[in-house]
Design a protein around this nucleic acid. Structure first.
Lengths: 241, 241
DNA sequence: CAGTGGTCTAGACCACTTT
DNA sequence: AAGTGGTCTAGACCACTGA
């Protein structure tokens, strides 16, 4: 293989395969060609291909299973990937909260949303407000903002109470959006009026504020999420993962 | 090489090298034997050895430099490793605070310290209280607890105001303590009296609380750190790294 | 059983650093 | 120039999966 490109071969191969996944040539859940076959097609040795695949696996873009094959990653649930903090109980077990979607609207991005998501002023976004409920008690108030251009038709099937976030994950898989990185910012704030209503806490209660922007394998900002956590009870531990 | 051990060879090799670093056979900053030499000594191929070295490098236990050699990792400053959150200003630049050590005492571990650090009841610990100062304003109040057994003679040169934490890093390197992992717990609390005095904020101000236990390459709990961050100003972003 | 990914080896050559 | 780690190849064999 001629190499005017200065990057190592395995890096180039990784980029090629990354592109196939991101562009949708290879769909979520699809099985890749066997290693010798792929190596022949790309004109590299098996070892070089394997090194590229290892990189993709480390970034959770593919899943390799001995004896079965290599698959494009599927993000079937929120805890698989794209969830960057986790709540555990004091025994150390992960706790899965219920989710209640309280609003789902589409409109032009605010100034802050546009800046964080790198959108042009006035571009449309979908906004999802939801609360997350632990043992019957709402502990997290959350707003998710998505660029409408990346999730076409997203807001049409409006039935927030029932659907939870399944459609969101579905759209992500359909549109080649595979989350690989997020920028996070932490702080503590006092609960204001709307938060206190959702979380059932007094105004002024200290809340853990997590502001997160998430990027996909193509480098696009695909989600902005602002979470307010009521950690009063100290029955749970919040960790960043 | 005979293999009653079920683990892959490269995993075994990695464990052997890990042990040499942890036990102090290879000191911090020391250069390792060249790859062909090491491979011959261990009776494995160069490829297998390189795979083991890659694992150690991923865990930051060694540093490889093309043309020069492979070195045991050196944790010369706190930001190198062993610091698990980072403060940035709004331009995204990392901000390095000043450090003021306010107390340095040695005594028996509290119940909580013993539990977190996995110590027997009554074992001695060193306790360091310090505040971290950004642009002249104290923003973090922090207590570091170290098992005295791992840091012998640590408290002897008592000059808290001047020394900062250099001695601590020095001791870590000397005693084969290389930090590789930490458990973290996040929450928000209201500032109590002592915090408000250190941080110069009103009682009740929301503070970001980070409780962290750090482990070294040998799996020992080597540090417990409780940090209270005043994020009021919102001139900084806190991220977990 | 055939087909897959996982391990391990041996050797050639390249790129970087220091003497 | 000599020595180091980095890349790339080719091929043998092992371990797992599913028909």
């Amino acid at each position: 293989m001629r190499r005017p490109d200065a990057r190592p071969l395995y890096v180039q191969v990784e980029a090629i395969l990354n592109e196939r996944i991101v562009s949708g040539s290879w769909r979520s859940g699809q099985v890749l060609p066997a290693e010798p076959e792929l190596a022949a097609e790309l004109g590299v040795s098996a070892g070089t291909l394997r090194r590229a695949l290892a990189g993709l696996e480390r970034r959770h873009l593919i899943q390799r299973r001995q004896g079965r094959g290599t698959y494009v990653a599927q993000q079937t649930s929120e805890q698989a990937l794209g969830q960057f903090f986790r709540v555990r109980n004091l025994a150390g077990q992960p706790v899965e909260p219920e989710t209640l979607v309280t609003a789902l609207v589409t409109g032009p991005a605010t100034e802050e949303e546009a800046a964080r998501l790198r959108l042009a002023p006035g571009e449309e976004v979908h906004r999802i407000d939801r609360s997350r409920i632990f043992e019957g008690e709402p502990r997290i108030a959350e707003r998710i903002t998505l660029p409408a251009a990346l999730f076409p038709g997203f807001s049409l099937p409006l039935a927030p109470e029932q659907l939870g976030m399944e459609i969101y994950v579905y759209y992500r898989n359909r549109h080649g959006i595979i989350v690989v990185r997020s920028d996070e910012k932490l702080s503590a704030i006092a609960a204001a009026e709307p938060d206190s209503a959702v979380l059932g806490c007094a105004i002024g209660t200290p809340l853990l504020l997590i502001e997160r922007v998430t990027f996909d394998a193509a480098g696009r900002a695909v989600e902005m999420r602002v979470s307010r956590l009521d950690t009063r009870a100290h029955r749970y531990a919040v960790e960043i993962v």
